[in-house]
Design a protein around this nucleic acid. Structure first.
Lengths: 185, 185
DNA sequence: GTCTATAGGTGGATAGAC
DNA sequence: GTCTATCCACCTATAGAC
């Protein structure tokens, strides 16, 4: 699948780090053939972000079906990032955020929307957890949500540059526990 | 100065996001002239990282001269990131970390070393602060240090993609207070 | 839908004059 | 040190045959 090959490359090399020829080569076709499905690279980029966001939100919805409480859900959230990094990838929108100023306008809005959706979901979990008395944290839920997303994105970035996907596990766990404490009633 | 122009572009657009012609244009010379000073772009890249790291460490040394205690130093540390983002830039090594897999080998080591130096300095401040009884945090100083660097790098990245350098200020402050609490004896 | 062929542009890099 | 001129590789994109 074109999107699968392009997505993997974008998560490893960035959007500007791969070409139509690269994707075509993996699929055993020519670059012109990719242009038939995605006339401009911007079209491919927008589609990549849309699909990634959809899948991410689907994973979050799946987590919500676990009736294990807010704390377990936050751990599952961090687990998504952990599995992505274990595959040698970064978060698609994280790496695109680094390339933000070089990307076409049409791709920028959806990237910001991805982080917005992350914060929305986390805000909901944090609010619910505090309400239920199983989570404690400082300040407004939305602020903690923003800090959490940032901490995980940054930890991925740094962990890859230092060669340790293992380091991410302990760093993300510490960041999660520090930003938000589980209560045992 | 070549390095100044190249550094600014690298912090905004990434290392692959600018060309010799771009830098030359700003300086009113030709690309060939830049090649005289930096034969290959890799040479320029390595030099950029070295200089950035040197300046960063100098700023940290300057902070240590403030006798205001460990907590104030950590706030000053976050302040460095804040001022960089206020100029519309990212941390040079943060944006290079996103491009890591596309960069030549000679640039990779120094990027990891930058983060290592950050962690070393933070670890020293955290250890001293805990020893002096003015800081409280969970686990080992080095783990908190890694989480702090990651949180600030990630917060910068996300803040820029969401249009708010102001959002970074509150997010970084929250991350700092959550990862490490000041004690008032 | 996929191919070949190609246009048009850009980027890194070098040679040699000044 | 900086210039002009040039090379070569690569990338995005399109036209048109199959």
């Amino acid at each position: 699948m074109i999107l699968d090959a392009a997505e993997r490359r974008a998560q490893v090399l960035g959007f500007n780090g791969f070409s139509y020829a690269d994707v075509a080569g993996e699929l055993g076709v020519t670059a012109a053939s990719i242009h038939y499905h995605f006339p401009a690279k911007t079209d491919l980029g927008v589609r990549l972000i849309e699909r990634y966001t959809q899948r991410f939100l689907a994973a979050l919805a799946q987590i919500e079906r676990h009736p294990d409480g807010a704390w377990a859900r936050l751990q599952d959230y961090a687990g998504i990032y952990e599995r992505v990094l274990a595959e040698g990838r970064l978060c698609l929108c994280g790496i695109l955020a680094a390339e933000y100023e070089t990307l076409p306008e049409r791709m920028r809005g959806p990237i910001g929307a991805f982080f917005g959706a992350n914060e929305d979901w986390l805000t909901a979990q944090l609010s619910e957890g505090r309400q239920a008395g199983v989570l404690a944290f400082e300040g407004e839920p939305r602020g903690v949500a923003a800090a959490l997303t940032g901490a995980l994105e940054g930890a991925m970035l740094v962990a890859r540059a230092r060669g340790g996907a293992e380091a991410f596990v302990s760093t993300s766990a510490l960041a999660l526990r520090s930003l938000c404490q589980p209560l045992s009633p």
